[in-house]
Design a protein around this nucleic acid. Structure first.
Lengths: 354, 354
DNA sequence: TTTAGCACTCAGGAATGGCGAGTGCTAAAC
DNA sequence: GTTTAGCACTCGCCATTCCTGAGTGCTAAA
């Protein structure tokens, strides 16, 4: 059954007022607020029906009404107006995203922090790890006679490095030899294929090199493993204390400790978000995780190129300003996608804006 | 005036009991607990004197005693027994430190998290940034015909990289030329010396290369800047909610927001800690920062080689288990120093244990 | 110097009562 | 049929009061 226009209008007013004040809203306040030219009594009747239909709840008999999860759902689906960000906000976001050294993990971490700051809710960002990666190239750079840096590049174009200090001297030619050896024996192999036997063979070919091959390959394996298993960043957990629903320290603590468990976050939240393309909103009991049953989550996914995806999201009380949060979040997610897709333009070249 | 043995014994018992229970401790409980063969009345007299001397405080007339900051100070200086870590704990710490890819920032971040988890207090770790750094070497690696990776190495042997995507093709010889150019013109220069003019000259010498020189040098400048200004990592802020002194959400929030301000953390806490070598304990009002006046901080410094230092620390209520925290913290700090000083041993080589 | 005894203090919890916001229902008005 | 005014009723919140018990300081005896 479709709700009458007036009921919708009232429901919307209840939700928006409650989002602002965190106080149950009564018939009298609504009569003034909702732009309807009816008395509080009429509104009371409507409220009673909306309550019966399950869109509103009453904390106790003599209190005003509060939206139920179902009420929020209806609001989000049908009544909420898409929020446009101000020019200033978009500018701010763009700048923040383009700033700083652009290493994959740094940017994503940064984006999470930014979203948290922007919305005043805790935020998280995660990258999916799924595809089997391989090493595309090894480089060894001599630092001084007793140390060198190994640079490995994966086929997803991520580069990681590590400094190795040696117990003995090493010459440039030796290093060259090692490099060639590494590049012929280990490039293009997945994690499983980098077997101990393979290492032993290569080690043998290298002659007396203090087991350097194994060291570098182990490092490469660590890199592959870390990338394939994805990463989780959280930021701004302390923001939950800003909101009156978490005056109860126990509640706040529960949510916080949930947020700091990277693994459960990834598993219970990443899955639903990666399916659709759009922004997703999960309201209270719609969440799978028990810890989030009275919490809402707004999610947006982004592309990091190469077919891989990530999710960025915000957690807050069900009384969350969904319109604003969703707008900001999806703008940031789009920004991330573009960032990873777009070629690096030299400063002189014409820039594309939209 | 030196305190009598008995007074010390009582003070110590008060501190330790209060650390455990967070409840003011009364004369009767002390009579049983403190291993003294005197009655509660005697203890009352002693307590009264200790209170007069400023080592204890009374929340209100009819409550037990609580250590004052001065009491804690005496406890820390003279009465506290150094805590030895269990073998299991040291093992756990060592493993955690040696795990994972060993990039400077990752390790330090990791160490902070570990300390927080180990102590159940919020922790932070920061690296000092002071010395003027220079770039020691540039490497450009072709990824495919339209992108390359720039690898820069500083004279402190830190390596950072960034992927550049180009709007046009680029060949291996071109890249070689650029590399040589970069290495002759910009190596050994400090941040200030990397002037726009210098860049323009080099750009000219490179001919038509889409302003790539500037791009790479800008990146190098970002790297230098980031390294010179140091970094701050915080972890486990949510742990403050575990402790009853922060049942008051307002207090918790204040401390949390202080902890998330990297800058003030670095300035007000780093300075005192970097002077001495040992573990430092700052109790309540001994802290410079107003936000920490009723909070204690335990600090330990570590070496990251090359004359540079860092600080790792823990924040908690004055009722903190100083002995345990200090032990763990200094163990981790030592571990870090060793980690950065020690050569990388190949797996076959004999390992030194202590 | 230590101890037992005792009157005193005061925070914290339970019990009480008034207040007011908000409701549901009824009956009249549109 | 819908809307409105009126009114009795409910119940959370707040302030007040009272009571209890832990812990104290003081005094006088051991």
């Amino acid at each position: 059954m479709e709700l009458s226009e007036r009921k919708k209008k009232i429901l919307r007013a209840v939700v928006e007022s409650y989002i602002q004040t965190a106080e149950p809203v009564g018939s009298k306040a609504l009569a003034e607020l909702a732009g309807l030219k009816v008395s509080s009594a009429t509104i009371r009747n409507e409220l009673a029906e909306l309550t019966e239909l399950g869109y509103l709840e009453q904390p106790h008999t003599s209190a005003g009404r509060v939206p139920s999860p179902r009420g929020y759902r209806l609001y989000v689906n049908e009544l909420m107006e898409e929020q446009r960000l101000s020019l200033e906000e978009t500018k701010q976001i763009n700048e923040a995203l383009h700033l700083k050294m652009r290493e994959l993990d740094k940017v994503i971490d940064q984006a999470g922090r930014m979203v948290s700051q922007l919305t005043n809710y805790p935020a998280f960002a995660l990258t999916e790890g799924a595809r089997r990666l391989t090493i595309k190239r090894f480089d060894l750079i001599l630092v001084d006679s007793a140390s060198f840096i190994a640079v490995v590049m994966t086929d997803s174009s991520v580069v990681k490095n590590k400094l190795f200090r040696l117990p003995a001297e090493l010459s440039e030619p030796q290093l060259q030899l090692l490099t060639t050896l590494l590049n012929t024996a280990f490039v293009g192999k997945t994690l499983d294929q980098l077997t101990p036997e393979l290492m032993r063979v290569a080690e043998h070919a290298a002659g007396s090199s203090y087991g350097l091959i194994s060291l570098v390959v182990s490092f490469a394996m660590e890199v592959l493993d870390a990338l394939e298993s994805g990463a989780v960043y959280t930021a701004g957990a302390s923001h939950i204390l800003d909101h009156p629903e978490y005056q109860d320290v126990g509640k706040a603590q529960k949510l916080m400790s949930y947020l700091s468990e990277d693994r459960s976050l990834a598993q219970t939240l990443a899955l639903p978000a990666l399916e659709g393309d759009d922004t997703k909103i999960l309201i209270g009991p719609e969440n799978v995780a028990d810890e989030l049953k009275d919490t809402s989550v707004v999610l947006a996914s982004y592309d990091i190129g190469d077919g891989m995806k990530g999710v960025i999201g915000v957690v807050g009380p069900t009384r969350m300003d969904y319109a604003k949060v969703a707008a900001k979040l999806s703008y940031v997610a789009d920004g991330l996608s573009k960032l990873f897709g777009q070629p690096e333009l030299p400063p002189g070249a014409p820039e594309k804006e939209e």
